[in-house]
Amino acid sequence: MMASGSPDILIVEDEPAILTSLEFILQHAGWKTHSVTDGEAAIKSVQAGQPKIVVLDLMLPRRNGFEVLKVIRRQPATKELPVLILTAKGQQQDKQTARELGASDFITKPYANTDVVEAVANLIGQPPKAVPAP
């Protein structure tokens, strides 16, 4: 909610360059973002900030993406929260696990910026302000 200053999107990513790029494209699409770089921080932020969506990397320090996803799905308050998984691990096995754990969508790195924006818009039911040209 804008009033309380809560972000639209929680970005969880430990690679600084990728984090910078994600922040840029999502903010550019008109959403507010909040970023954390490890699993622990992600769990805290989900509970505290009540984002509309979590963009979640899998390879994370402290607690990995799957663990974070599990915690989110276990909590009643965040049970329905959309979670978009972004990962450099392109294996089928990981997709399967993500789906089973209740991931809303799954995008493999390296991604096209437009794919990420579209996926987020779909999941939160809110079109981007300016759709970047391909």
Partner: peptide, 16 residues
């Protein structure tokens, strides 16, 4: 994939 992601994403940003 990790550096590739950054490279691709930033080049797209620069392009668009």
């Amino acid at each position: 994939r990790t550096p590739m992601t950054a490279i691709r994403s930033f080049s797209e940003i620069l392009l668009t």
